[in-house]
């Protein structure tokens, strides 16, 4: 059984009288422990696919099984649970809450999982140690560099021990040195057994992955194993 299995998944948006077909039917299987890059030019449907894989959105048609559960027809509350348990998001713009400390940011998913405070604190601390930020726990996002912020975001994505780490253009807002550093972190996480899916339009970023799915105009153009 694949960790993640999509079949002919499509998503269109109604824009007034017009219908935008962002995704026109994509099928793929991703196994546990894979490191996959989703590539394609801007507007090709990468983010749309990632939102579907991350259970932020439901497909217009097609099926999606995550860990053997059909999630394409679940209601919002059930999807919230799945996101909380199975998915860790890393965004291009970090999306940290600006007014609270790194530790409190990392705690967030555990709050919605209903984990008691002390346990939560401990888990958040461990996650921040994992991304080498033990000395920045009480800092707020605006007191940290871009790379540090993205590492906080990665710690937050990992703290719930999700099945998949989903990253949409994770290096898009970083300089190349910091970007390389973050990719190194992904690499080591993958080595530890995490499943990682990175959305990018940059070839160098994609080359860190072991498999590249290329999207063009809402369709899967190629699916290749690298290295």
């Amino acid at each position: 059984m694949s960790l993640l299995r999509i079949r002919n998944i499509a998503r269109s948006y109604e824009m007034g009288a017009e219908t935008v077909h962002a995704l026109r039917g994509v099928s793929a299987d991703i196994e546990k422990g894979e490191y996959v890059a989703i590539m394609g030019p801007s507007g090709s449907g990468k983010s749309t696919l990632m939102n579907l894989l991350g259970c932020l959105d439901s497909p217009t048609s097609g099926s999606y099984e995550l860990n053997g559960t059909d999630v394409s027809s679940l209601d919002e509350n059930a999807l919230s649970d799945i996101r909380n348990r199975e998915i860790g998001f890393v965004f291009q713009t970090f999306n940290l809450l600006p007014r609270v400390s790194a530790l409190r940011n990392v705690e967030l998913p555990l709050i919605y999982a209903g984990i008691p405070r002390d346990e939560r604190r401990e888990a958040a601390r461990v996650a921040l140690e994992q991304v080498n930020l033990s000395d920045r726990m009480e800092h707020r996002p605006n007191e940290m560099s871009g790379g540090q912020r993205q590492r906080v975001a990665i710690a937050r994505a990992l703290v719930n021990q999700p099945s998949i780490l989903l990253a949409d253009e994770p290096t898009g807002n970083l300089d190349s040195t910091t970007g390389t550093e973050i990719l190194g972190l992904f690499h080591s996480l993958w080595k530890k057994g995490h499943t990682i899916i990175v959305v990018t339009h940059e070839e160098e970023v994609a080359l860190n992955a072991r498999r590249i799915l290329r999207i063009r105009d809402g369709l899967l153009a190629s699916d290749e194993i690298v290295k």
Binding site: G54, L56, S80, R83, P109, Y112
Partner: peptide, 8 residues
């Protein structure tokens, strides 16, 4: 963000 992290 909160919803993405699992807030109902």
């Amino acid at each position: 963000v909160r919803k993405a992290l699992g807030a109902k």
